[in-house]
Design a protein around this nucleic acid. Structure first.
Length: 575
RNA sequence: GCGCCCGUAGCUCAGCUGGAUAGAGCGACGGCCUCCGGAGCCGUAGGUCGCAGGUUCGAAUCCUGCCGGGCGUGCCA
């Protein structure tokens, strides 16, 4: 169940009944368990309205709350809070229902929405590097979380397959291309040629002009350039597929920028005919300060939103507008998330404003995230100054995990060990990224990332493996276990109150696009379980006590399994 | 220049639309293996929330200014 929503409604009714007014309860979990489980903060604001001291206002509300079966204690505290402690019987029964629920206590979202998640979006002809990690991991987690919350989700990989870089690449291939190398190691060859070409273009205007001409030919449908481009795309796709397979990430659509090229001319015409865009210095763009119905903050800016270059070529702004139309008209999306680096915030603000002016009512959201930094606080690079490739990063993660398994001297078979190392290593990398609020910059640190203790991926996997171990010995099926967890010891009590929040947390993470909320919850479950494990022996218990403890284990296990799965992290039976 | 973001414990970070004595992890220090898996558990130490004002019953959170850092800023994405 969604506990906070439930209690909020309860408090709202109590306020209505006790005071005869409609008011926001502002119900929140307490920060400190000694203040109870939840608190009503909203009564303080009623002082002016009711002309009474807050504590006097709070008294009848607290009395009402106490009448509810959910509430064991309702106390007026401080200047006028009402501290609530949930009744153990209520918690126990609610958890028993979650255990008996095929959705494990996550109610289906109402209304159900169709959500496009646009993420990863690597460039063709380049290897994926750590810069793509956050978008890929975050986007994949959001897709899974939204699906679990009951939405219909379309995962879309909006590849960078159409920009200026192809002019450089084609011109570069003419100049320095090695056909054999392109067949053998396509990405290496493309990267080599691209580097040479972009260097040359900086100093050699004739070459830069030639690159622009090649791009124009490609975009005009020239057969030779088109064939070359298709080779680039196919070769890159192969390398991307390998990385995504390792990461366990998949997409429903692979609609790169090229897919929208045909619609770009129409977008520009539409914008011009509606008076939203105009010509300037040979280019065409939207100048917000001139538009009455543009948002106020953009009207104060001078930066234009260019949709056509002087040479007639379209830009990513153009394809992005075309994409917004496509997502509304063809995909019938209610909501679209753009999981893209925060540095593009201005672009998305502009894009969303333009979409709104065009009458696109799809809820467009920029799910922005901070940069990945090295230990020196600068964008992460290898020693020789290159970006760290995703492949090498993931290899390193598995290697380190493997070394740790050796150290532990675990009795894993030769088939099992590499799979476990992979799950632990990659899980650690993903968790280290996801557990942080996406808005903050992310300092990349191997030791933190592959840390095997504390708030880290392997700790959660470990807690899960211990639960599985218990359930195996008890000879029960985790998904078939039923019963009411008991709040019969301090550790069991604390764990149960954490478990009760699961449904609320999944929805909160889905609504705010914040997977770290789920990470926090899972860590609380794992920590709570570990304490429970020390205090409450499961297999030695008998009768009702055994049933209750197995139920607690099973629910914690299901939340950990489903929660980790939502984060894109594999669970392990033995580690 | 203008705009956006950030500044919380030695380090890495939470702190949701303002709520009580600001929380975790790592690192440090001290305990816990006759018991279901010690990648664990229990505890201790550690903070003028960048600075100064303001709003409020109440500010890490909202507003203003300043200091420090990052990013963006017309034909890349």
């Amino acid at each position: 169940m969604r506990i906070e929503r439930h209690l909020d409604a309860l408090a709202r009714r109590a306020i209505q009944d006790a005071l005869g007014v409609e008011a926001e309860p502002a119900l929140r979990p307490t920060q400190d368990p000694k203040h109870g489980d939840y608190q009503i903060n909203g009564l303080l604001g009623l002082k002016a309205k009711l002309g009474k001291p807050p504590r006097e206002i709070a008294a009848p509300v607290a009395a009402r709350m106490l009448e509810a079966a959910e509430i064991a204690e309702a106390e007026i505290a401080g200047p006028g809070f009402v501290n609530l402690r949930l009744s153990p019987a209520f918690v126990s029964q609610a958890l028993a229902r979650d255990l008996d629920d095929a959705r494990t206590g996550v109610p289906a979202a109402e209304p159900k929405e169709r959500v496009v998640v646009d993420f990863s979006s690597p460039n063709i002809a380049k290897r994926m590097h750590v810069g793509h990690l956050r978008s890929t991991i975050l986007g994949d987690a959001l897709v899974r979380i939204l699906r679990t919350a009951g939405h219909e989700v379309i995962a879309d990989n909006h590849l960078g397959d159409w920009g200026t870089q192809f002019g450089l690449l084609i011109a570069g291939m003419r100049e320095w291309g090695d056909e054999a190398a392109l067949d053998r190691e396509p990405i290496d060859e493309l990267e080599r040629v691209y580097r040479l070409a972009s260097e040359r273009a900086k100093t050699d205007e004739a070459f830069a002009e030639q690159a622009r001409a090649e791009l124009a030919k490609l975009q005009a449908g020239d057969a030779t350039n088109r064939a070359l481009w298709e080779r680039f795309v196919a070769a890159t796709r192969k390398s991307l597929d390998a990385v995504y397979a390792t990461l366990g990430v998949s997409f429903d659509l692979w609609l790169g920028e090229s897919a929208y090229h045909a619609a770009c001319a129409g977008v520009v015409d539409l914008l011009v005919s509606k008076g939203i865009a105009r010509e300037s210095e040979g280019a065409i763009g939207v100048f917000f300060k001139e538009l009455d119905d543009a948002p106020k903050d953009l009207r104060a800016t001078k930066e234009p939103f260019l949709v056509r270059k002087r040479d007639g070529a379209f830009m990513y702004a153009t394809t992005d507008v075309a994409t917004a139309f496509y997502r509304r008209d063809e995909l019938h999306a209610d909501r679209a998330l753009y999981v893209v680096d925060m540095r593009q915030a201005l672009h998305f603000k502009q894009l969303f404003a333009v979409a709104k002016m065009l009458g696109i009512e799809t809820r467009l959201e920029h799910v922005a995230f901070g940069s990945v930094l090295g230990e020196d606080g600068k964008p992460l690079k290898t020693r020789d100054g290159k970006a760290v490739t995703l492949e090498s990063l993931l290899d390193e993660a598995a290697t380190r995990a493997s070394a740790r398994i050796q150290e532990e001297g675990l009795d894993l078979g030769p088939d099992e060990a590499p799979a476990v190392a992979r799950a632990v290593g990659i899980g650690a990398v993903k968790y280290a990224d996801l557990r942080q609020n996406r808005a903050s910059d992310y300092t990349f640190d191997w030791d933190k990332m592959i840390s095997f203790k504390g708030n880290a991926g392997p700790y959660l996997q470990y807690a899960y493996a211990r639960i599985r171990s218990i359930l195996r010995k008890a000879e029960v099926d985790m998904d078939a276990v039923r019963g009411a967890p008991a709040l019969d010891t301090p550790a069991a009590d604390a764990l149960c109150r954490v478990l009760l929040r699961y449904g609320e947390v999944v929805h909160a993470a889905a609504e705010a696009s914040l997977p770290h909320l789920l990470c926090d919850h899972l860590y609380a479950v794992a920590r709570g379980f570990s304490a429970f494990y020390e205090q409450c022996h499961v297999l030695r218990a008998e009768g009702d006590e055994r049933t209750a403890r197995l139920a607690t284990c099973a629910l914690a296990g299901r939340q950990l399994r489903d929660g980790l799965t939502m984060l894109g992290i594999d669970v392990i039976e033995r580690m």
